[in-house]
Structures are given as C-alpha cells and as structure tokens.
Design a protein around this nucleic acid. Structure first.
Length: 633
RNA sequence: CGGGGCGUGGCGCAGCCUGGCAGCGCGCCUGCUUUGGGAGCAGGAGGUCCCGGGUUCAAAUCCCGGCGCCCCGACCA
C-alpha cells in the first residue's frame, strides 16, 4: 500500500519521467536484498516496495529461478512446468518448497477458499500438526499406515496429523454443551503430514502439504445435511472462481463408513483418479454404475458342452478360438478375505469366485464394499488347490460361492462360455442359474460408451481430486465424546461432516489444464501477477523510460505487475514470460514508441492485441490494459 | 510390497562395459560488442564423481554394503 501511495504522489509531481525515480526509497545494495535475476543495470539501483507488499515487482530483484530444461525425472506437466518456471523446488521425496512466485499462486487459491468459507459462516482457527497420540487411539486412526508416528524425548507417543478430526472434535466436545451451541462450522488451513507409500507428480501427491479442512457440527442428520449443502455452495463457488474445469462427483464413502461423500475433480492428464462423465452425470469410476454395452451372445443350448481349448488361457485366446465375442465369456476372478500366508482352511472359508463378462473388469472398490473389507486375489497355487487349473476355472461345478456381476444377467439369455475347471477345457452354452447358483451384484468397472443411469453415453477421464466433502455422522463424535443436551435435556451425540481442499492441487490442476508448448497459462484468479511488463532495449534507451512509466501506471490502474527490467535479450524475456504464464504480457519496446501502440499478448491462446499509447491522459493506455485484463478468463 | 531405472559443477548429460589428466551443452563471473523471440568474441570461477568399506601401483569406472531419487504396478483416511 505504501508503494502505491508513493507511486501516485510521484506521478502527480513529475508526470512522464518515472524512470529516474522509484516507488520506495531503499537501495538494493543497502538492503542486502538480492535475487538470481538481479543485474547491475537496474536504473537507480533501487528496489520497490512491491517486493514486500505484493503490488508490483521488479524481476531484476526477485527470486524467480527459471530453468530452460525440466528435471530429467519429471513426468507430469505441472511438475515440469512448476519447476521450470521457478515456482517450486524439491527438498526430498514428496517434500516441496514453494518459492515466492509459486507461493503467491498458492496464497491466491487459499484466499479464494477463505473468502467463500467465511461467506457460509465458517470460522477459521488453527490447530497443531504435532499431536498426542491418545486421541488417535480413541478414534482408531492410530492404525492408519500413512500416519507419521514419533516419540518426544520423554518417550511420549506423538503423531503428525494427516487431518484434524480428532482435535477439533475434542475442542467441540469440551466446549459445546447445549443444542443452542449448534450448528457450528470451523475450518483451518494447515500443514498436513502423510507417510505416502509413493509420492508422485511434483506437488500433486506429497508427504507434507497444506490443506484446508472444515468440520461441521450439527444436532442431527437434517442439520448435517444442511451443513453439507452449505459446503457444496461454497465449494462450487471456490472452484468456479479458481478458473478450473471441475466436476462434483459421487464418491465412495470409504472404509470409515460415512453417510455420503462427494469429490471435486479437476480433469487433467496427471490425474490419479478417473471420473465417469455423461451429460447430467458425474461419478468417480470407483463408484460409477452404468448399463453395459450389449454383446452378441451365442444362442442358448440345452446343456453346457465341453470344448477343447488346449493352451488357451486368456479371454482373447478363447474368444478367438471359439469365434465368440470376448463379452460372451464369463471371466472368473477368485478372491479371498484371508491374509497372505493364512492357513488354507481360512483361505477357503473366505474365498469367493467373482464373475464378470469377459470384456469387463472387476471394480476393486465395489468388490471391497460387497465383501465388507479386505480381500486379495488367490495365488496361483491357491487357485489350483481350491478352484481348478489356473486359466480354466469357472462357476460351473465350482466349490466356491459365486458372485456374479449384474451385467451378465442384463446381457440377456444366451450360451455363455467359461472355464470347465479342468485343464485345457472350456464350457459353452452355459446359463447362470441353470448351471450354477450365484449372488448377483454390481461389481464391474464401467467402460467408456456404457450408458449412464440417466441414459447418456459415458466417457472416462483422468482427474485430480481437488476437494472432498464427507458426511461423517458420529464416526468421531461418538468415540471422542462430543455430545450436547437437547431441548429435553437428553444427551445427544453431535453429527459431523468434514470437508477438505488441497490448494496445491488447485494450483497444479490449473497448470495441467491450461498449459501449452510455451508454458503455464494461469486463470486470472490464480496468476502470480496479472500482467508481465517486458522492457526491451538497453538500459537508458527511450523504451526503458516508457517501461518505467507504464510500470507505475499499470500498478495504479489496479494491476499486479511483474516488471521484467532485467538486462537480457528479448527472446529470453518473452520465453520466460510465457513460461510463467501471467494472463497478459505488455511489451515496452521501440515499436511501441514508433507506432504509438502498446503491444499486448493474451497468454491463453497467445493472441496479440494493441492499445493506443498516445492520448490526452498519460495513464489511458494503462487503464485500457486493465480493462482488457478484466475480460480474461 | 513386486518390477524397472537413475545418482558425475546450479540444470541437462557423456565418461563406467575394457581402471590411468573429470569432460560437454546450458547457466554463472569479468570485459568489449549486441538489444523485438533463449546473442557474439575473449578471459574466468565452480567437483566429497551419493555415502562407507574392499580389490589395485592406481577406482567416477571393478566388488560388497548402505542411502537417496524417479517411473510402472499394488496401496491410498
């Protein structure tokens, strides 16, 4: 703010010759402030207060270490570009520092989140990352493998929090007494720690990250539903404002057995999740249901008929040899709920034979839910022992209970093909029900082209989960004793919800969604600066004076300006500007002076524009730039 | 946990198989030139070749052990 005021004062006093003055009054050398891009040619050798206050910034004094080449081991677009653009640096596996420009972007995402949560009446607080282990024992989450555990010097057990349900619930348990104290919405923005098995893709999946977590506390299920709805409102606005392409999808409630959940998914190539999409339908592939595409089944037969299929153990081989579509096969997937190494008896007791169409895949999440917990495929030797020769097992005559995917029945009557439970033999003309008993469930993974519940064809896209909302119910309030007295003075358990957003994922998803060959292209709402002003010509040249003047005028017009006042070539400056991806680039060069037109580039699409440079009022051009900026995505 | 790969100057890499001066490109520093798409010339700085042990006259290179990082799969409240 100080900087801007100084600006105005200056411009009023000495219009048109900003070049020899500065906004602040501090000498770079005197402050000791330096940066990789500082060169000796900064006019006046000063630094601007914008470095500190965020309004305007001279690149010559800013820590923005850009790289021409990405790290060799980086795959994801966001990983490569965020490192190249000087936004983040890796410290260890899944551990990242945010450099100043990157942190500005992160903070903009956080700012949007904060505003929208405040707007629904949620109250910000802060809770520690380092916590006593005891509440985690009470909630049962001490057993989670991703939880970092440690001891202090006295040997007390501690954890590094991955989320803050336990602590926030304890605070509420301690202080909320009456139904009059509810509902309550609390949130915090805090570092979270997870001992990830495999951190990956830059800042997309890390071991330490900042997360916004909200928690709602209500009297009953209806209250929870209302709090949940308020968060949907806030979240929809947050992701709209962030400029991302996003979907709110139905999600699995997970092992914690919640009452309902949605995820906010931003489609992008580096996404770890998949979303099934159709007009009016969006779901995580983990939970998506759809009508399968039809398959042309062979005609029914009076009884199964054994056919020789020597050496043919895959769906493709068998389908090809018998001249039937892959979808006419019954694929057998034997699983057990017994741990590895368990005695054969318990392996057998927990075993099921899961059957899906030959052209379908088992959805592990659905199967987990169906089996209510852990399961694993049988090992080859267990298959041989309990089911039949691997490659030739099938439901007919099997000693294992059969779980049949619903799509088989929906494919209509016909003669199915399956393994005969004998070496080198399959059966054709098989009919579920007549030839084997089964339990029917939705167990398959939907495929592109399937028909959604509302009758539309599905597509499947990779996406990154940028947020989630979850109806916890009494999952934490019960073990941690968060109760209140109702109107009748009866003790009731509080109903909770939890709601997360990863700002770093918003940032990375934005990079992924809008990057092009030249680099990042930020949505206006996230960009580290609104506009990058590129000064061409050698120091002291007339275009440098123009640049200095524009720098002040653009800032006064309300834009956050990154001013490339470095002493490098035009090519390097243009390339760096496009790499960093501010929405608008303004060029102060000889051409501008000669043509009386200011050249602009809209980063998204790299479209060129001009605004008149010469008019009655000196700052008109800057105002025109600001106006153009306000129309950008 | 299964599979694959990589650690050499700030970044990207060669050298390793077949032991013998530690190199290349970019970047960085100084000077001059240049200034609208990653400039030119000249000079220069910068290395625990991931760590430890072993073999050898001699180890970036061979052997043993460890650590770190990446990718694929599994896993992911």
């Amino acid at each position: 703010m100080l900087g801007l005021e100084d600006h105005r004062r200056h411009e009023d006093d000495v219009p048109g010759s900003v070049a020899n003055d500065v906004i602040g009054d501090v000498d770079v050398a005197a402050t000791g402030i330096s940066g990789v891009h500082r060169r000796h040619g900064v006019p006046g050798g000063r630094y601007c207060a914008g470095i500190l206050f965020g309004g305007v910034t001279r690149l010559s004094g800013y820590f923005l270490p850009t790289e021409r080449e990405p790290p060799a081991d980086a795959e994801a677009i966001s990983h490569r570009l965020m490192v190249r653009a000087g936004l983040v640096r890796q410290v260890g596996a899944g551990l990242w520092s945010w450099l100043p420009a990157g942190w500005r972007v992160h903070q903009r995402a956080v700012g949007i989140i904060r505003e929208e949560l405040d707007a629904i009446g949620s109250q910000e607080l802060l809770m520690p990352v380092l916590q006593p282990a005891e509440p985690w024992k009470r909630s049962g989450r001490i057993a989670i493998e991703e939880l970092f555990r440690l001891e202090d010097r006295r040997g007390a057990e501690m954890v590094l929090a991955m989320t803050h349900e336990e602590i926030v619930t304890l605070h509420v348990a301690q202080s909320v007494r009456s139904y009059r104290d509810l509902p309550l919405l609390l949130y915090h923005i805090q570092t979270k720690e997870r001992d990830e098995l495999r951190p990956r893709a830059g800042v997309l999946r890390t071991r330490e990250f900042i997360m916004k977590d909200s928690y709602s506390f209500d009297r009953d299920a209806a209250g929870l539903a209302a709090s949940y709805e308020r968060h949907i409102t806030a979240y929809d606005r947050i992701f709209d404002r962030s400029g991302l392409r996003w979907y709110r999808v139905e999600a699995d409630v997970g092992m914690m057995g919640g009452l309902g959940a949605h995820e906010y998914m931003a489609p992008c190539p580096a996404g770890e999740n998949e979303v099934a999409l159709a007009p009016g339908y969006a779901a995580n592939v983990e939970v998506a249901s759809a009508r399968a595409q039809p398959v042309a089944l062979p005609p029914p037969q009076d009884a199964p008929q054994e056919v020789a299929t020597p050496g043919l153990t895959t769906v493709e081989q068998v389908a090809g040899a018998l001249a039937v579509p892959a979808g006419a096969l019954l694929k057998a997937y034997p699983v057990t709920s017994a741990e590895h190494g368990a005695p054969l008896r318990s392996v057998r007791a927990g075993a099921r034979l899961v059957i899906v169409r030959g052209d379908h895949r088992v959805n592990e999440m659905k199967l987990t839910n169906a089996l209510r917990g852990y399961h694993r495929p049988l090992r080859a030797e267990e298959v041989a022992e309990l089911a039949g020769p691997p490659g030739y097992i099938g439901p007919v005559g099997s000693s294992l209970p059969v779980l049949l995917d619903r799509a088989v029945g929906e494919a209509g009557p016909g003669g199915w093909v399956c393994g005969a439970n004998r070496p080198d033999r399959h059966l054709r003309g098989v009919e579920p029900g007549r030839d084997f008993a089964f339990g029917e469930l939705d167990l398959r993974r939907v495929e592109p082209g399937d028909v959604s519940p509302n009758g539309q064809p599905l597509t499947i896209e990779p996406a990154i989960e940028v947020g989630n909302i979850f109806k916890l119910g009494k999952r934490y309030s019960e073990p941690l004793g968060a109760t209140y007295l109702d109107e009748q003075g009866r003790e009731q358990t509080i109903w909770m919800g939890s709601y997360g957003i990863g700002p770093a994922r918003i940032v990375a998803a934005a990079v992924e969604q809008f990057a092009d060959e030249q680099g990042i292209s930020w949505p206006r709402a996230l960009a580290p600066w609104d506009c990058e002003l590129v000064a061409l010509g050698r120091p002291g040249a007339p275009e440098r004076e123009l640049a200095e003047r524009l720098y002040a005028q653009l800032a006064e017009a309300g834009l956050r300006v990154l001013y490339d006042d470095r002493e490098s070539g035009a090519g390097e400056k243009f390339a760096d500007a496009e790499l960093l991806g501010c929405p608008l680039r303004v060029v102060a060069g000889r051409r501008a002076l000669e043509a009386g037109e200011l050249e602009l580039q809209l980063r998204r699409g790299r479209e060129a524009r001009t605004v008149p440079l010469v008019s009655e009022k000196p700052a008109d051009a800057a105002r025109a730039v600001a106006e153009l900026w306000s129309t950008l995505p």
